[in-house]
Every structure is written in C-alpha cells, then in structure tokens.
Design a protein around this nucleic acid. Structure first.
Lengths: 295, 295
DNA sequence: CGCGTTCTGAAACAAACTCTTCAGAATCTG
DNA sequence: CAGATTCTGAAGAGTTTGTTTCAGAACGCG
C-alpha cells in the first residue's frame, strides 16, 4: 500500500521540510514549523485541521506538499503514516523525541534534560514576592540602576543592561575592569539599585563592590547559583538559579530565563512611559540605518 | 481539544476494542484485529483505506466506531491521534506546577511556559548532524574562529567567545562597531569560521559581513530565530531557535542553550588538549588574584 | 516611489469520504 | 426445515476534503 507519487529518495517528511526550509515562503515555513513542532501528529489530521493548526490556508498546505515532492496532501500524509509505522514497529526507537534523531546519550539530549531539570528546580523555589519586589525596584524611575557581572556572567549583565537601557533612563553597566569601580561607587546614591551577577567561582571583587554599595544605602540584588555567592548573604534580594550541566562549564540558561522574565515584568510595569520610549528608540534605529545607507 | 463525542471514560481505542471484543460481530472482529495488529497506524487512514486493509466494508467500520462509543469514524480517528500525541510528545510538556505559589497568570509562570515550549519546539527540529558538524568546525584548531553579534545578541556572542577563548586558541570577538569590521575580514582566511548571531530584527550589517566572509571561503555558522535571518540562507550551518515570549522582547534563552551545549561538545572533543589549557588558565587566574591581594 | 514579481487566502469546483438505507446472506431457534 | 433474527456490503445521499483559480496583498528592486 506504499502510495504512488512519493519521490524516490528515501527522505522523511521532516527531513524534506528542514532541507528545503529556505525555499519555503513565509506561510509555508509557518506550516512546516507547526508540523515539525508536534511531529508527526499534526500532519495526520485532515488538510483543514492541519491548515487551521498552522493558521494558514489549505492551498498553502497543498502547495507545500507539492514543493516537497508529493503529488498532493494525501500523498504527504501517507508518507507520514508510513514513517510512523516504521518508527513504531521498531522497538528500539522508543521515545527519544528530544532532538528527534539523536540518541539519548547525545550531548544535546543530555544537556536538554539537565536544562529542564534546572528550570524545574529553580522555579520550584523561586519566590514570586522576591521577583515582584525586584521588578518594583527596577521599574522605579527615581532609582538609578547599576549592573555588574563577572568574567562569565558579564554576558548576562550586558543582556540585562541592554534591555533595561531601552526601557528606562539611568541604567549603567559597570565595566569589567575593577580598577574603575570606585568611580561608579562614588556616583551611587541611597536608594539606587545594584544588580550583581556572581556565579561560582565567586569573585572577590564583586563582593567588595557589593559591600561598598550597601554602605551607601544602595539596594542590592544578586543573581547567583543555588549555593549562593557570599555577596548574596548581604543582599536585599537574591535569585538562586541552578547551573548544573553535563559540561566542564556551568549553565547560565536559567539565570537568563529569570533575567528575561524580569525584563518583561519591568516593561509591563512601566509600559505607560516605556511605550513611547520604545517607539522613539525604533525611530532612532531606523534613522541610523538610513544614515548608514548613504555613507 | 478533546473532541466532543468521545465517551467520558479515559480508555484508549485499543482498550475499548479489546474490552468489547466479545460483543463484536465477525466482520467487526476482523476489523479490530487488523487495527490492533498495526496500532495505531492502520486507523489513521481514511475509512475506505481502513475497510480495505481489514477486508470489510465501510459500514462495518462505522458501526464498530459507534459500538465503541464514538459518534462516528472521524471521532474514533481523532481519539487515535490524541493518544499518539500523548505518547509521543515530550516529558517537557507536562510540568503543571512551575513556580509553586505564583498564580498561573503570573508573568513568571507565563514566561516559564513559553520558555519550555520554545525549548520543546526547537529541540524537535534541531538536527544533531548539523550540531555535530558545527562542533567539529569549532573544535578544529587549524581554523580561526570569529564571533559576532548584533545589538541584542551581542551578549550571546560574548558568552560564546568567553568560553571558546578558554578552550582554544585563535578565537576573536568581533567588536560591535561595524566600522571596524573590514579589518577583521582582512584577516580571515579560507577555512576559518564565522559564527554570527542574528535574531530579528535582522541587522543588515551582519548580512554584509557574512557575505564578505563567505567570499573569502570562510565557513559561516548562523544563530537565528526560526524565521531565519537572511544571513542564514547563505550559511553552511544555521540554528533556528524559538524566541517567542510573553514580552515586548524576544527570548534568547533557547539560543543560549544551544550555545552552551555547543561549548560542552567542543570541550569534549578537544578535551585532550583543552584539559591542560584549562588548568593553566586556573593557575593564571589564581596568580592574578594573588597579585591583586598585595597591591 | 512605482513597477514587476511573488505570495496568499477566498471562493468555487472536483474528488473523496462518511454515513444511511436496504436487500440479500448468514446464522440461530424451535 | 421454516421462520425469525442478525449480520453484511452494495448503492447512493450528503458531507467534508482536497485542488485549482484568481484577485488582491506583500515584497523586492531600481
């Protein structure tokens, strides 16, 4: 019952979609993404269902099927069923459906498992009140914000800084070079906020900076791992993200997650003001682009 | 999305068929046996196909569907698809309680849900081969590595750079200011690798840089979102991470995940050499610290 | 900014599917 | 074995699905 019009090469539908992804149009990509996202179940419904799931029209589905080398949608679907049969009847291929074709022991899957576990553990013990309190601090335009990171966490600090800077005024990224830090401390006023990233191996300089800031009445927010940087003990608020990974290095993924959630929360809180600010920013970027074009 | 006319008991179609096998007529048993024999694939075709496969008539199929408690064949089929989805889909999908005390509508939980979904979707369509190939490129000490990011993705580029730099020689972070980029291009040789981060809104400069690099025979690896930066179409390898978030900003979390997994993989691949290198690095850091202490 | 190209989905049509009806076959019962 | 009962699939009615067409939208390019 192997359908007729299926091309000779023995590629799966998924492979076809990925392989020709670049040739696909916007709507087709949307469709392919949807189908890949819940592969192969989505593709097994009627063409109408599939189209609705991907929020495209049925003609788009037909067109993509043809682009991928099938005579029509029914043929594509038949191919999906054939694949499914091949997969299911093979007992070895259990459910290693993380990265579909990779064995469970592939670093990608091991890393994914660790990452998910880190997320789960972190979220379980994250206190929403803390989170909201920090949101409040960062959203308060009366407070100046300082952001600092260490050797590795510099990237996180940078990320938070870049976004906060777009959202509000008075945000400063403290340069890596700790020689210059006294200058920053000098400018800090009571009620300002210092966000410090300090994940093991903890950096002594950051602890010192945090202490100096606190002496000046600065609110201290620390991002650290779940063992806790020494700087976290004196902090007003701290986030303890899990960082374990099957790697010689720690994972910053969960920390980044918290940072992004914070950015979203601050953006929400200040939307009234930041909306106009964002639009103006867009305009400025467009101008920069225009400007460059004519150089 | 559980279709309407499905009975309340949460039985699979297979269970229903077996449970009521004795109530079935000859033709119906024949049908049920066929469907169970290649479960659930056979049941996923059209009613005509199913009937033919079991060598019974279509009315028989309809009658059995109704006997099993479904409104009709399409409903039975929908149940099959739902089962399949439940079986195949990831363990990731169903963590019900994220941040324990926060209501579901709290930004933390909404963000967490989006993040997990992004992970799932991305992993589903990530190609391990692609990943391994990039690992190979980055682990190859004969190739120089250049890393570049855009306004937001700069942090990711920085993160990758910081780690790679610890792992191997000849890694360069291309500065943000695109005026200086020609200098870098000048130094690029055939076989070198350019890792470019370009997530919407895509930056024209990065596209230009990528093109220039490619003209010089440089291997191009692009990190982008699942819509795909224009730079990705000319790339030797590209990673398409999902970036949707309940935020005015896109999420870089999944991209960071891929970066970290890559770092781990490269570290593994080069462990023989990088091990000694890492230890030396540790020693150097310790010396720096000692040094500072006595100033 | 205007032009040509490509893309997209509404609409109409053709094909296939699903279900119902019903007559004959098979089976059971006394 | 006759008669009642149940089962079954051919045939066709009524839906839904799958495909094509086409006009407008979106896009890219000079």
């Amino acid at each position: 019952m192997k359908n007729t019009a299926v091309p000779s090469d023995d590629l799966t539908v998924a492979e076809r979609m990925r392989q020709r992804f670049d040739d696909l149009t916007r709507a087709e990509r949307q469709l392919a993404s949807t189908m890949l996202g819940n592969y192969p179940v989505t593709g097994l419904g009627s063409i109408t269902t599939v189209a609705e799931a991907a929020e495209v029209s049925t003609p788009t589905v037909v067109r993509m099927a043809k682009k991928l080398g099938f005579a029509g949608f029914p043929q594509l679907q038949a191919a999906l069923r054939a694949e499914l049969e091949a997969t299911i009847s093979n007992p070895i291929v259990k459910h290693d459906h993380w990265a579909q074709d990779a064995p469970d022991t592939h670093i990608l899957n091991r890393f994914a498992a660790a990452a998910m576990e880190n997320m789960r553990l972190t979220l379980n013990q994250l206190e929403p009140d803390q989170f909201d309190a920090v949101t409040g601090l960062l959203a308060d335009e009366k407070r100046k914000i300082y952001v600092v990171g260490g050797r590795i966490t510099r990237a996180l600090a940078d990320y938070l800084f870049t976004h906060l800077q777009a959202i509000r005024n008075d945000v400063t990224l403290i340069a890596s070079n700790s020689n210059t830090w006294p200058h920053y401390v000098l400018n800090m006023a009571k009620g300002d906020v210092l966000v410090a990233f300090d994940i093991r191996r903890y950096e002594h300089d950051i602890l010192r900076l945090a202490e100096m800031a606190r002496e000046r009445g600065v609110k201290l927010v620390v991002f650290t791992d779940h063992w806790g940087s020494p700087a976290a003990s004196g902090a007003d608020h701290s986030f303890h993200a899990r960082i374990e990974a099957p790697s010689a290095w720690d994972s910053s993924m969960v920390s980044l997650f918290i940072v992004e959630a914070l950015i979203a929360a601050v953006q929400n809180e200040t939307w009234k003001d930041s909306k106009e600010r964002m639009h103006e920013l867009e305009r400025l970027f467009d101008q920069t682009k225009l400007f460059r074009k004519f150089i």
